[in-house]
Design a protein around this nucleic acid. Sequence first.
DNA 1: GGATGTAATGCAATCGGTTGCATGTCAAGC
DNA 2: GCTTGACATGCAACCGATTGCATTACATCC
Lengths: 344, 344
Amino acid sequence: MKCDPDGREQRPEVAPTISQVAKLSGVSRATVSRAFTRPGMLSEETVRRVKAVADKLGYVPNQVARALSTGRHGNVGLIVSDVANPFFPPLIRAAQLHADKAGLCVFLGNSDEDPAREELLLGRFIGQVEGLVLASSRLDEAQIRTYAARRPLVLINRDIEGITRVLIDTAPGVAAAIAHLAELGHRHIAYVSGPTTSWSNQQRRNAVRKEAAKRGIKVIAIPARPPSYDTGRLAAAPIVASGVTAAIAFDDLVAQGLLAGLAALDVDVPRSFSVVGCDDVLGETTYPPLTTVSARCADAGDVAVGLLLSQMNDGASGEIRHKLNSHLVVRASTGPAPAKRKSR
Amino acid sequence: MKCDPDGREQRPEVAPTISQVAKLSGVSRATVSRAFTRPGMLSEETVRRVKAVADKLGYVPNQVARALSTGRHGNVGLIVSDVANPFFPPLIRAAQLHADKAGLCVFLGNSDEDPAREELLLGRFIGQVEGLVLASSRLDEAQIRTYAARRPLVLINRDIEGITRVLIDTAPGVAAAIAHLAELGHRHIAYVSGPTTSWSNQQRRNAVRKEAAKRGIKVIAIPARPPSYDTGRLAAAPIVASGVTAAIAFDDLVAQGLLAGLAALDVDVPRSFSVVGCDDVLGETTYPPLTTVSARCADAGDVAVGLLLSQMNDGASGEIRHKLNSHLVVRASTGPAPAKRKSR
DNA sequence: GGATGTAATGCAATCGGTTGCATGTCAAGC
DNA sequence: GCTTGACATGCAACCGATTGCATTACATCC
């Protein structure tokens, strides 16, 4: 290790280049390159010698230079709308893991629900990645298409024709939730809605309406925007005032907030009010443990990267619309509708 | 948009290059380059014209090419030990935000608490980033030093001499927690410990011991490894059996699990048992709301990137050891020690 | 023996920028 | 009117790889 006059360590320990390896092993740079990328083209003896020298020098091919000449950087980009929302970390983890196995590095971007930020990130990423995954993108369709034209791109929870996407289909789970509530005798419920631009929200809202209509259940909508613990908590008051006996929330976070808001209003869950969440990202950690629609959201990250990979390799992209199923997990936040609601 | 004979869209919509911009605006490539990197060197008129053309073409300088010639890629790497642990997402978000403001992209790596994976990721990152942040690294000291010699590197919650680091100093908060419990009359408590290799765990354990000794409180240690909701829950039984009246957990997740475990054993919190957490990442979302040591962990991400940036710019690194303070947040999971513990 | 094929390797252009140095222009100073 | 310097811009080398197209050396076949 080189040191400056004071004996302090000095950066950078410059990395050896292909030329040094070439000179030391008495071959051309092209041969060194091939020793790493297409060893089959060279005699075994040459490959052995080159690799030995490379090892001794600690030579590793420079990814950046390689990327410039081949256009393959070995990176993929993943943009999510909110890292801090518990929905995403498992998804990120799964995506990461899959990318890792394929030898890829992942750029993570956090749009914070802001389309402008999302586009900025995309602009920075696009030049250095081979493919993109956009989870819960808030961009408009035209923009997404533009990027999809330049790079393989997979959407999560966004349904745009012609672009490969993986959709967590919560409709069956939501329908089951409504059925569950109906069986428990609830006749009047609330849907606590999320972002209007969210595909998931639209899908859940529709599923609630449809299934409720089928069973003659009345449903009102109360917004919680942006979807969070706090907005969920604040939704408790209007919900109680509305006279419904149960609520199904856009996601678990909102449901958890709602639980807290109800507790603050001295409404007992599940005795006098039932709550169901969506996503199943909180497990049993709420009080009471939340009945929720489980969506295996981690799988979405895994599948998305898988599709991206095959798209990157195939070149031409057959459009794929991958649906992930959902089901209801009954825990302790739902119970029989109260015989008559205690007013206020 | 180009189409193949079937009319299907074709990739790639090749990105415009500096040469195209140069030709169209009637200047040399050097001038275009300077219009973006050192506009002050050019006449205002030229800059305006070049930028106008660039805009029209949608030209964006190719990061990869730029990186090759300057050695600056505009990327930083962030490796965490577990994305899914709620401690990290806010930290990641803050780091991301800071990096963004500086025009940097961030590679995220998730080591899943595995040193081998951590090293693998580091190896992939090192060539394409200008700097690294390692949060709760599980690597051994020698390895970290090796990487630190090649790139500016900042540690979070790892205390290695000579390497810039930001440490969340939970000792004051933990001491305050012990004091709080002492005032409530607890004389015998448990510390639910985390990973042995974790700097945070060592620090917390020591703070508990020291403060407890000072106040004549007896403390036993019960492990929860790896730290998670589940291991916390499982720790409830031995803790209750041990006869202590309060527990302080390695982190909030463990505390939350412990809360659930206690509830399952019909131990009322805080009436007959007190629990305090650490990190304050769950806010009021637990039941009952958790008394915890607040550490502003998001700040750690922000500060770390800040230090990294200044290190990247200064070149030579003065070593910095940045401490982040902590304090106790009293909520509803702690109360007076029960007069006598109900045995069973 | 000459044509042909094949395997191993080198040459040099290329990827898309950046930058040290040279050049040209114009105004100020003597 | 000539020198000088500042300013704006161009030229061309360079960053570290990859790769199409030679080139060379043999072996094979007729």
